[in-house]
Each structure stands twice: as structure tokens, then as C-alpha cells.
Amino acid sequence: MSLKYFDSKPQNLIALFYVFSLITLQGFGGVITVMQRTLVDQRKWFSQTEFLEMFTLSQVLPGPNVCNLALMIGDRFFGAKGAVVAMMGMLVLPLGVILVLASSYDQVAVGSPLAGMIKGMSVVAVGMTLGTGLRLLSGIQTDVVGRLVPMFVIAVVLYAVGYLRLSVAWAVFGCGAVSYLWARHCLQSRLAKRKAHQ
């Protein structure tokens, strides 16, 4: 974690609302890609590791995970008020968009130009999800847990959830437990080493 990340933050609640509205409106088929881009790469509110940490917690908590993530970020900068404003930013404008669409929605005919466009956009969205996963790999703290165990955990989750279609809860609690115990073990042996040095 380098120090330069700490001096960039939203100016006020309006800025917070604005940034999250902008993120959410760009988020076709995956808000997380846009959020990582905007908050880590462009605005530098967080380091890759900090972001991955918050994203992890938001995924494990119940509820819409990008909203949970917005809530955490808002709370971190402006407390409870920030949490509410960030979440509102995520929801208000897209809610308007989707309700307008819902009130004018007729079945999109297969083979129509609109259906083609939607197909193309969903293909890009899948690629974006994959790309975000690859990008967040660098946020895993390999200096603590090494490479082997995280790679193994990722492979097992992919096999269980992606291939076998087991429930997400299974992956979170099963693989999470193994990964948690390994991280705990690594942290403990680190502490022990540090004490031995002193």
C-alpha cells in the first residue's frame, strides 16, 4: 500500500453521488469492471489490494454486491450519510432507466437489429468480467500467502461453480474456509518469525 493513495478522495457528498451515478450508468452487464477502473486506476481512491479486500467482503455479504461495495466506500469517506448517498448514486438513475424500459418493453424479436446489438453487448460484457478477474489477480497478497494456494483455490472455485454449477454459498464457505485457514497460518508464522527476530 503506497502513500499516494491516501490523498485522493471525493470532495463532498455530491461528488460521491456523481461518481457512483457515472459508474453505474456505464455498467452494462457488470458494474464491477467500471468501478474497479474508475476508483482504482483513474481516481486512485484505493489500491488494487484495498479494493479487492472491500470487494471480497461485499461478495460474501448478502444482497446486491455492487451496492454493498458502494455502501462500504461511502461509509469509509463520509460515514453513514456517505453510505446512503453512494448507494442512492448506484440505484436512482438506473432505476429510472429500467422503469422507462419496462413501461415500453415489448418482446425483442429474435433476429432483429436490436437483438443483435444486445447479443454483441453481452459478449463484450462476458469478456469484461473475465478481464476484471484477471486484473484483480494482482490484488491477491501473494507476499503473504504465496501463489500456489490462491491458484489452487481459484481453480477449485471455477470447477465447482463454473463447471459443476454448485451453489455460490458452497464455494464461499467450502473453499473460503480452506483459504482462510491457509492465510491465518501464513500470518501466524510471519508473526512468530518477527517475534524471533526481536
Binding site: L130, L137, Q141, P150, I154, C186
Partner: peptide, 12 residues
Amino acid sequence: IGASPVVVGLLF
């Protein structure tokens, strides 16, 4: 630290 590989795995 431990849960982050799981989350990346879920994205994949």
C-alpha cells in the same frame, strides 16, 4: 486475504 482468491474464482 483468504477470501480474495475465492472472489476472483467466482468472477471467472
